[in-house]
Design a protein around this nucleic acid. Structure first.
Length: 273
DNA sequence: AAAGATGCCAACCGCAGAGTT
DNA sequence: CAACTCTGCGGTTGGCATCTT
């Protein structure tokens, strides 16, 4: 059904890259001010590799901004925290660690961090204690604060947006008002701050009926969370364009509440650890 | 010292989504 | 709007390095 792998072509080399191949690839990209089409790059550069292999070699090893060397404790801590929020979305996690690649982080996770969590008695997927199924503490986790989980969803969406923009830096500068663009601006605006304040006042927010019916086993993809969030952001933006500042403030509050109220089934209770 | 086990990581594979025709 | 192409992502693997017995 699917397309044949691009490396199936006869005569294309696979396996480890040689220094000569690296040099050819780097020289080509430097000379042309970018890679252009990865598919046509091997022919143009004179490499007996498929485009995919070239892209991987460049993004994971040859890129000039790659940071080499071991991860610091802070890095590892951050990766664990981000994994708790984002799951196995290595590219999104990597976007928060400049110079580190998704592959590198994935390897670090699979070889070190995962085991470390297990040793600490935590499930590396859920970041929750590997306790017995009848552990009363688990129940406490299940009914964790909704506002805490909303906070995690905001954070998740923010990281996704940043990951996207880090891949497409031109979006910062042009006039395309993308969803991610809006998101980041709102996140850094008074509204974002308001939300963070709301989080601090989490005891005042009661959504117990929703969290009680949450299916903890089914994790909602963060993209869905973002969709819901963006709907709220778009409402804020459209409201603000036709309102006085006071009304704007009200609409922000309203939209903020909408964001807080949207149905969710992500289990983010690990944030309370 | 040698053989087997384990760790590590670069690279490959296949899928999915976005863009194009 | 279906078919196709391109690219990015996450899972997996192969092989070298290191450790253990």
């Amino acid at each position: 059904m699917g397309r044949k792998p691009c490396c199936d072509k006869m005569g294309l080399k696979k396996g480890p890259w040689t220094a000569e191949e690296d040099e050819i690839l780097v020289n080509y990209i430097n000379k042309n001010g970018g890679h252009g089409s990865w598919r046509s790059l091997p022919n143009l550069a004179g490499l007996l590799r498929c485009g995919k292999s070239c892209r991987l070699r460049w993004t994971n090893y040859l890129r000039p901004d790659i940071k080499r060397g071991s991860f610091t404790l802070e890095d590892e801590k951050l990766i664990i925290q981000l994994h708790g929020i984002l799951g196995n979305r290595w590219a999104a996690i990597a976007s928060q660690l400049p110079g580190r690649t998704d592959n590198e982080i994935k390897n670090l996770w699979n070889t070190h961090l995962k085991k470390r969590l297990i040793c600490m008695g935590l499930d590396p997927q859920t970041h929750q204690p590997l306790a017995s199924p009848h552990n009363p503490n688990d129940k406490a986790h299940a009914s964790s604060s909704t506002s805490t989980r909303h906070m995690a969803q905001w954070e998740s969406a923010r990281l996704e947006a940043e990951a996207r923009l880090s891949r497409e830096p031109h979006l910062y500068n042009n006039n395309n008002k993308t969803d991610s663009d809006y998101f980041l601006r709102i996140w850094n605006s008074d509204l974002g701050e308001s939300f963070r304040d709301v989080h601090k006042l989490e005891s005042s927010i009661k959504c117990e009926s929703q969290s009680a019916t949450t299916d903890l086993a089914s994790l909602t993809p963060a993209s869905i969370v973002k969709e819901e969030f963006l709907w709220g952001v778009k409402k804020i933006v459209s409201d603000s364009s036709s309102s006085s500042s006071e009304l704007h403030h009200d609409s922000c509050d309203t939209s903020l509440q909408l964001l807080l109220d949207f149905p969710m089934n992500n289990d983010m209770s690990f944030l309370e650890l």
